[in-house]
Structures are given as structure tokens and as C-alpha cells.
Design a protein around this nucleic acid. Structure first.
Length: 800
DNA sequence: GTTCCAACATTTTTT
DNA sequence: ATGTTGGAAC
């Protein structure tokens, strides 16, 4: 790592100072203001699609072009590697050449750089390893067992969640407030302390530590802090609404001297509260940095008028907003479309058909390619219905999200082998693979190795070696363990011999077991490791259907190594960069979660599954109440604003949830869509009111008295009857059919408040005349009765 | 030490 | 419905 206080500036950068500044001409007044306000704190409130990245990159270019800062004096922080990469590319494009911006990166990657320099200040060595989630869990499991706690009642996951939560708040074990220590059987902090101790002895960090250790160093070593404050003269932060307390402290410490900090964000797009993000950080900015300029980017370049208005209508229901008024010059366009379906399968079928017809070109829109269309769901299990449908009709799709490449079992195993080869004393890696593939080493062998290692104060590998030498292990396990230890020695020796610059060196003698002669590039070494360890043959002999895919992944892993010049370099990269962008040129529809969609845009967006309980998610509301609901609403806002030209919201009257059919109530967010900007595709109705809405009428619009005629004569009701006749659903086992008057279930009032009550928990079996038949199972009946007690005074014709 | 079955949970995800 | 996991049976 070089260049921190480096005074030498390449000539190309000096030349830049005299370069004209055309980038300013492309900006609107607000963006320009945000670029020109270089000194002092700035909060750039950038709504969806308002060109914040453009403003941010222009600002960096401006700093460089005016000579206010050199590339190594600009700290630009993002959350994801993707965002960092994108920003680097855009700056390079504006500058016309590739520049080193050494301090542009994620919170974590920058923290690692700082921490490697000062590791000893927090009791680590500069070569510390970064643990992934899996390692963390295994470590915690050990601690929990050691503490004599029932691992079943108190799972490691929960402890991991708790510690993560504390680290997000920047609470070290001694700083956890007493109000928070009740969790995990009152022993959370105790285990937290032990966990930190273990990490230190392993010379390791988890992700939270990367930030937290930096904060600790800054707080306890003013000289180090001052150094960074002097070096990093301009600070820029993207997605500020997603920062947690630790990140906030990190930033504040670095910025407090010069206060040249520019935070960019949108309080309406804060959707990561559940992982520690504090919207409060952005809401409080002006208090934290008195005299801050607040610049609002409000001109939207992405969406049509109607889409923007629909999104604004929904988000307006949130309290506690800084407030923005998005506007666009793009008048007209399509209204947001709303459609109800009988069930989730029909919804998938309809969307599939719609995608194909948009591909051909309908509704006066040009033909839109599959790359231009996306389906954004609330929860990943919703993706399945679409995958099923698209597979049957042969519509190409891509799923974003899901398990990442580096999180797959075979990849982590392979990585553990590499880690051992690089640093044989990596105990966690040792534990992971000693018995993978099976080497006849079980619980007893594991304990013996551990005991020997601990007694000698050495690593597990050395412990194993001693155990073998002392004959402390017998049977067929011994021979295999010996082969394993020797293998690690051999691989490690190969790495020592093949220093990165000399990667082509032939070190044949070191590898008697391997094939005749080859240059031991790290790529080849990786292959050798996987073969000699028996890991590859383990999967080759595996007859399960997923084995071939795993072998493919291993090949891909080895291929990925080519882009690095050593195994060490690769491991460091992977620890921080877990993305999995296998770009595929073919046109495909994108299916992903709303969370994954933030920051993206598509001409056509489908938003399925807008049903209460699913979206907004019941769990979110149960756990976080109004706060949770507001975050869900921001998610709705994010979803709608991804669309450029056409946005379609849909819901289903019935959905299979964990194998059980459940009737669904349309999302309360549908009620918040401003009618003037919505086109309802299921005539004649609108939103609200359970089955009524599913049948295509609006319960919330029905006047008493006029209601029934409206409902029964509506085309939507007729359609529902037809469908019920042609496609009856399987009733739940032990179910009984119950007939309910549609007007009674659609809506009831309490005082002056209107409720849309879900009397579901069952499946709609059929429609007859003005009655709806629903099947409930036993549990469903219980819950329905509870609901009916509340609603009884309004509903006539109760079935119970 | 390995294999099999019952119990269990099941929002969102980055680093 | 489905995938994971821990413990009992082999």
C-alpha cells in the first residue's frame, strides 16, 4: 500500500488542472450547486433517478480539476463493491483516463487498508484474516458449547445476530448498555467478550470488527486520527441513509477536523434498518454538522409523470421525512397499472404473457427487449412461481441474488484448502477440511488434535503432526491424516517457492506426488491442491444431481484465479468482495428482490404479490411496528421508482404459503396509490377489500346499499365465478367449506376507521350467487373466529 | 464413523 | 412445500 502521504503526482494529473471543465455544463442547477459546494459539510438529498451518481462523480472530477485535491486526498465511500467500481469507472470516463483513486471503496475495504497499517494498536498482527459468516458461526458454536449452554435452545445464529447488532451500534463488550444484555440467556455479553478474545488469538476479524477496530484506533490514538484527517481532505459518502452507528462514528471522526464531508442519500430509500442502518443519521445531519448546506436533487430523469406521482403518493404516507418533491419534464406516458389475479400461478402466467407481448410491442410502446423488463418481489420465495412459469414457456430469465458464488459449499471448502496452503496455522480452515473428503476422522480425532495443539500452544496442523508422531492416533484415520498433513506442507512449500513475481518458476522437486513437470503457477497449484486432497474425486464419485454443478463451480473458481498473481492476493480479494457477476450476453428478464433492485432501473417493471402480510411483510410489522411498516413503504417506493415507462402492480386472491392455500388481502399500499395515476386492469374496481378486490371491485368505494348490485354485476365478479368453476382449488385437509357474504367480509368499520379485514387463512373454493365459499383448516378456523369477534357488530350473516 | 429420519423454520443482504 | 440440521440407529 503506497501513496498515502505521497507527494509525487503523476504528470497526467497535473495536466488535468488546466483541462476545461465541460462536465459542469451537463448538470442541472441543483447538481451544479452540489458539485461547487466543496468546502464545509454538504448533504445532497438525491431522490430516485435524479442523477446523484453523476453529481457525485462530477464533484470528484471537479476537486481534481481545480487542483483542490489530489487523487489520494479524496475519500469516497460506498456500501458495495459494485457501487465503488461503477463510480471509479464514471470518474475515469469523465477524466478521459484511468486514475488511481486509492481511497475510493467500500467502508470495509478502506477499513482493511487502515487496519493493516495499525493492527498492532488493537492487538492484531497486520496479517490478520477476515472471517466469513460460516467461520463465525462455527466459532460461536464452540464457545456456546464450552459455556455449557444448550446449543439447541440458544442457537449460534441468534448469538451471531446479537453480536452483529451490537457491533452495528459500535458497542464493544464492555459498552453494551445494561438494557440490552438480557438477550441470549443473559450471557450474550459474556460470550461476546470470549468471542472477541478468540478472534484476537486467531489473529482474525469479522466484518463488523473491520470498522469497529478502526473507530477504536481513531478514538484512542489521536495522532493516528490526525494523520488521516490531514491526508483525507475531502470525504464523500454514498447512500448515507444506509449507514449504521459504527460507520457514522467512523465518518464523523475522520471528518470532524476539516468538515469537508459530502453525504449523499435519500431518506425515502432507507430499506436496510433490519441490518442496522439508522435513518436517523441522515435526518440528523444538519445537527451533526452545523452550518451544513442541504442540496436537494429533485428533477427526475428516469420515470414518467404517472409513475413518479404514484410513487410519491405512496411515500407521502410516511411521517419523519426530510421531504422532497420529485418532478419530471417527461409528461404523459403510461399510468401505473393495477391488476388482481385469482392465484399466484395465474399472476405468473399473466406476467409471462405480458412480457412476451411487450416484447412484440403493444400499447403504443416500441418493442421492449427482455433486458428492459424486470420482476421485483418482496421475498425470494416468490421467485419460484415465475421460474416455474418461465421454464415451461421457455422465456429466458436471470435471477439476481440467491446464494453467492463464494458462499457455496464447494467453493468454501476449496477456499479453506487454499487458506491452509497459504497459512498452515489457519485453524478454522483446518477444521473445515481435515475430514472433507472423509478421512475417517471423527469427533474423537478432532478432540485429540485440539487437545494436543492446545497443550503445545501450537496450531491444529502442528497438533495433528505431534499426535501422529507420538502415535496418539491409530487406525485408518492415522494414515489419511498423515497424508493430509504432508499435503499441506507440500502445498505451503510450493507457495513459498513460487513468490508472485516468479510464478513461472519450476519447482518440480517439491512435488514428488504430482505429475512430471509443470510450471507451478498459483493456478496450477490450486488445481493440484484440489486433486491431491481428493476433493475433486469426492465430487466426481458423488452421484447426487448437484455434483456436476459443483465441479463446474470449482473449475470456475480456478479460472477466476487467473486474474490474480498469487493465491494470497486472491484470498484477500475474496474476503471482501463476494460478488458474483457472471454477465451473460443473452437477453433475459430479470427476477430479483426489491432490496437487490435499489440503484437499478428498467423501462418495464412488474411488482407482483402486493398482498397484506406478504408486502408489507407481516413479520416486519410485528417486529418493528410502525417503523417496520414505514420501511416497507419505502420499499414500495423504491420498487415503483425503478420503472422508467411502465410499472404494473399485481396481487392474487389466493396464494400457496408453505404448502397451504391462503386467501390474501390486497396490500394497504394499493389503497395509497393515487387513483388519478392508476389504470385498473381488472374492471371496474379498484383497490381495497379482500375478495372483493380480487373479484375486481373496490370495497372502499362501495356505498352502502348500492354495494351489492355493484359487486354482483361487475365483470370482475363474473370472471371470478368462471374461474372458480373451472379451476377449483384443493381445499386444505380437514377443512370445511364456509359460505360468507361478500359485502360482510370486504369491509367493516370501527368508529370512524375503516378496516379491511382478512377473513382468510383458507382457500376460496368457489363463488355462487352472492356468496363466497372458503375452506378453512382447524388453525384457520381459530384465527378466523378471533377476527370475527372484532368484526361481528358490522357483519351480518356470520357463519359462526 | 456414517446414514437416515424426524423436527424445525421459513424477509430482506452486504461486507 | 422444502430445505436444513441434530440426534438416534446402524
Amino acid at each position: 500500500m503506497n501513496g498515502l502521504g505521497d507527494a509525487a503526482v503523476p504528470l497526467s494529473q497535473r495536466a488535468m488542472a488546466v483541462r476545461p471543465v465541460p462536465y459542469l455544463d451537463e448538470l442541472n442547477p441543483a447538481q451544479r450547486a452540489a458539485v461547487l459546494a466543496l468546502d464545509g459539510p454538504v448533504l445532497m438529498l438525491a431522490g430516485a433517478g435524479t442523477g446523484k451518481t453523476k453529481a457525485l462523480t462530477s464533484r470528484i472530477v471537479h476537486l481534481l480539476a481545480t487542483g483542490k485535491a489530489r487523487p489520494n486526498e479524496i475519500l469516497a465511500v460506498t456500501f458495495t463493491n459494485k457501487a465503488a467500481r461503477e463510480m471509479k469507472e464514471r470518474v475515469a470516463r469523465l477524466l478521459g483516463h484511468v486514475e488511481g483513486l486509492p481511497w475510493m471503496g467500500t467502508f470495509h475495504s478502506i477499513s482493511v487498508r487502515i487496519l493493516r497499517r495499525h493492527a498492532e494498536l488493537v492487538g492484531l498482527k497486520s496479517s490478520f484474516t477476515i472471517l466469513d459468516t460460516d467461520d463465525q458461526l462455527r466459532l460461536m458454536k464452540q464457545l456456546i458449547t464450552a459455556a455449557g449452554i444448550d446449543e439447541k435452545r440458544w442457537p449460534a445464529r441468534q448469538l451471531a445476530g446479537l453480536i452483529d447488532h451490537w457491533k452495528n451500534r459500535a458497542w464493544m463488550p464492555d459498552k453494551v448498555p445494561s438494557s440490552e444484555t438480557a438477550g441470549f440467556n443473559n450471557r450474550g455479553t459474556e460470550l461476546y467478550e470470549q468471542y472477541q478474545e478468540r478472534l484476537r488469538s486467531l489473529n482474525a476479524c469479522d466484518f463488523g470488527d473491520l470498522l469497529l477496530h478502526c473507530v477504536t484506533i481513531f478514538q484512542t490514538h489521536p495522532d493516528v486520527l490526525a494523520q488521516y484527517q490531514r491526508w483525507l481532505r475531502y470525504i464523500m459518502v454514498d447512500e448515507y441513509q444506509d449507514t449504521n452507528v459504527a460507520q457514522y462514528l467512523w465518518l464523523r471522526l475522520l471528518a470532524q477536523a476539516h468538515r469537508n464531508i459530502c453525504c449523499v442519500g435519500d431518506d425515502d430509500q432507507s430499506i436496510y434498518g433490519w441490518r442496522g442502518a439508522e435513518v436517523g443519521n441522515i435526518l440528523r445531519f444538519e445537527k451533526d454538522f452545523p452550518g451544513a448546506q442541504v442540496i436537494r436533487l429533485e428533477q427526475n430523469y428516469r420515470s414518467t409523470e404517472h409513475i413518479l406521482a404514484a410513487a410519491s403518493g405512496v411515500i407521502a404516507a410516511n411521517a419523519d421525512r426530510l421531504g422532497k418533491t420529485l418532478w419530471t419534464e417527461a409528461k404523459g406516458g403510461e399510468k401505473l397499472r393495477l391488476i388482481g389475479h385469482w392465484d399466484g400461478e395465474e399472476e405468473a402466467r399473466w406476467i409471462g404473457d405480458e412480457i412476451e407481448s411487450l416484447q412484440r410491442g403493444t400499447r403504443g410502446l416500441d418493442p421492449l427487449g427482455l433486458d428492459d423488463q424486470a420482476i421485483l418481489v418482496r421475498a425470494s420465495h416468490q421467485m419460484r412461481a415465475f421460474e416455474d412459469r418461465f421454464l415451461t414457456i421457455g422465456l429466458p430469465y436471470r435471477v439476481i441474488g440467491g446464494p453467492r458464488f463464494y458462499e457455496r459449499l464447494e467453493i468454501r471448502d476449496a477456499m479453506a484448502y487454499f487458506r491452509l496452503a497459504v497459512s498452515p496455522d489457519d485453524d478454522l480452515a483446518f477444521e473445515r477440511v481435515v475430514n472433507t473428503p472423509k478421512r475417517g476422522l471423527g469427533e474423537k480425532a478432532r478432540q485429540d488434535i485440539q487437545r494436543t495443539a492446545r497443550a503445545g500452544g501450537v496450531s491444529l496442523l502442528e497438533g495433528a503432526r505431534e499426535l501422529l508422531a507420538g502415535g496418539g492416533i491409530g487406525g485408518k484415520g492415522a494414515g489419511q491424516l498423515r497424508a493430509f498433513v504432508e499435503g499441506v506442507d507440500r502445498w505451503h512449500a510450493a507457495i513459498l517457492a513460487a513468490r508472485p513475481p516468479l510464478a513461472e518458476t519450476v519447482i518440480e522437486p517439491l512435488l514428488p506426488a504430482a505429475s512430471p513437470r509443470f510450471d507451478l503457477s498459483h493456478v496450477r497449484l490450486a488445481e493440484v491442491i484440489l486433486e491431491e486432497s481428493g476433493y475433486v474425486s469426492m465430487w466426481q464419485n458423488d452421484k447426487t444431481p448437484e455434483a456436476p454443478g459443483r465441479l463446474e463451480n470449482l473449475k470456475e473458481l480456478v479460472k477466476a484465479l487467473e486474474q490474480f498473481d498469487s493465491l494470497q492476493g486472491f484470498l484477500e480479494h475474496v474476503a471482501l468482495i463476494m460478488d458474483n457477476e457472471t454477465e451473460d450476453a443473452a437477453e433475459k428478464v430479470t427476477i430479483m428482490t426489491l432490496h437487490a433492485a435499489k440503484g437499478l432501473e428498467f423501462p418495464v417493471v412488474f411488482l407482483p404479490g402486493w398482498e397484506d402480510g406478504l408486502f408489507p411483510s407481516q413479520r416486519s410489522m410485528d417486529e418493528s411496528g410502525l417503523k417496520g411498516l414505514e420501511e416497507e413503504r419505502r420499499l414500495a417506493y423504491v420498487g415503483i421508482t425503478r420503472a422508467e415507462r411502465l410499472c404494473t402492480v399485481s396481487f392474487a386472491a389466493n396464494r400457496r404459503v408453505y404448502g397451504q392455500w391462503q386467501s390474501q388481502l390486497p396490500s394497504r399500499f394499493i389503497d395509497e396509490l393515487p387513483p388519478a395515476h392508476v389504470e385498473v386492469l381488472t374492471p371496474p374496481g379498484l383497490h381495497g377489500g379482500g375478495y372483493g378486490a380480487a373479484a375486481g371491485f373496490s370495497a372502499s368505494r362501495i356505498e352502502e346499499g348500492a354495494a351489492k348490485a355493484d359487486v354482483y354485476n361487475s365483470p370482475g365478479w363474473k370472471r371470478m365465478q368462471d374461474r372458480a368453476a373451472s379451476r377449483p382449488l384443493n381445499p386444505p385437509r380437514e377443512a370445511r367449506g364456509v359460505t360468507i357474504d361478500i359485502t360482510a367480509i370486504a369491509r367493516f368499520t370501527e368508529g370512524d376507521r375503516v378496516f379491511h379485514q382478512k377473513f382468510g387463512y383458507g382457500a376460496v373454493l368457489g363463488v355462487e350467487g352472492d356468496k363466497l365459499e372458503i375452506a378453512f383448516d382447524k388453525a384457520g378456523v381459530k384465527r378466523v373466529i378471533a377476527s370475527f369477534i372484532t368484526a361481528a357488530h358490522e357483519a351480518d350473516d356470520l357463519p359462526f
